[in-house]
């Protein structure tokens, strides 16, 4: 058959493939097909009427905008955290390092609950921030804050191993050739870290686009102001407008796939030109 010779001796190919494909079909492919069938029941006019309302446009824009800003912040914070945790020895380093994974382990609903309570006017953070005019709860800023929390580990965990593997010699060479620390950072280190930063950005961005559990606690979910696309989908579902909800979901999926493909392409490009 078409199995290569050296692989033919091992057992379990048919069972393994059969099981994998069955589960993927049941769990992934059938639901996706159901989704497309549902959208196909709409006429093109109905489809556009559902997915391109003012409220829906505002929701896509907020979903993409907040996820983008949060991912950019995560790249900056993540680079700083990874740098300090890898390069310096200091009291509490390992403890802080283990804490970085908390956002992965903590249910996002808990994150949403905590940050919304901290950021309201009477909250621990809100009592200082609200008088300054920084409204974290029930605002777009709040959405960005929880998305930063939820996506925090991605950039740190993708950059850390790369930083660890970088030998001192390129930096050493740069320093000997007369580059100052700042030039070494921009010209030598950042280009080497760029692919991993991009990967971290993509993971954080994708996570933000789909995030629901934490956002509903903090955003207040006001249409056209603080309503993200997944919340709009649920709102349509609760009105039993299944076809419209599906249409919005398909648009959201298409947009996320296109933006992820774009980021992947950029990442591959930067990997190719990385030193």
């Amino acid at each position: 058959m078409w199995l290569s010779k050296s692989h033919r001796v091992l057992p379990g190919f048919h069972v393994g493939l059969g099981y994998t494909v069955t589960i993927l079909t049941l769990l992934l492919i059938l639901p996706l097909i159901a989704c497309l069938f549902k959208v196909a029941t709409l006429t093109p006019e109905q489809f556009f009427a559902a997915v391109w309302t003012e409220r829906a446009r505002a929701a896509y824009l907020l979903s993409f905008g907040a996820s983008f800003v949060a991912a950019v912040i995560n790249v900056a914070i993540g680079l700083l955290l990874a740098w300090v945790l890898v390069r310096y020895e200091f009291w509490g380093r390992r403890f802080l390092d283990s804490l970085i994974d908390l956002p992965f382990a903590l249910p996002t609903a808990v994150a949403g609950l905590v940050f919304s309570s901290l950021l309201v006017k009477q909250g621990w953070y809100g009592q200082f921030l609200v008088p300054l005019g920084i409204k974290g709860a029930y605002s777009q800023l709040g959405i960005i804050i929880v998305l930063v929390f939820v996506g925090l580990p991605f950039v740190v965990r993708t950059v850390q191993p790369v930083l660890e593997s970088l030998e001192g010699d390129t930096e050493e060479a740069a320093a000997m050739l007369g580059a100052n620390r700042w030039q070494t950072m921009w010209r030598v280190l950042l280009p080497a870290l760029q692919p991993s930063l991009m990967t971290g950005f993509a993971l954080s961005f994708a996570r933000g686009l789909g995030e629901y559990g934490s956002v509903i606690f903090i955003s207040g979910n006001m249409p056209r102001k603080t309503e993200i696309a997944p919340v709009l989908i649920v709102a349509r579902l609760e009105q039993f407008a299944y076809a419209e909800a599906t249409a919005i979901a398909v648009v959201l999926m298409a947009m996320s796939l296109v933006s992820l493909a774009l980021v992947n392409w950029l990442e591959r490009r930067s990997r190719r030109y990385a030193p």
Partner: peptide, 13 residues
């Protein structure tokens, strides 16, 4: 790559 809400929606469909 799929929002969990959309996952739920697909299962409902």
């Amino acid at each position: 790559a799929i929002s969990p809400v959309v996952v739920g929606l697909m299962l409902v469909l």
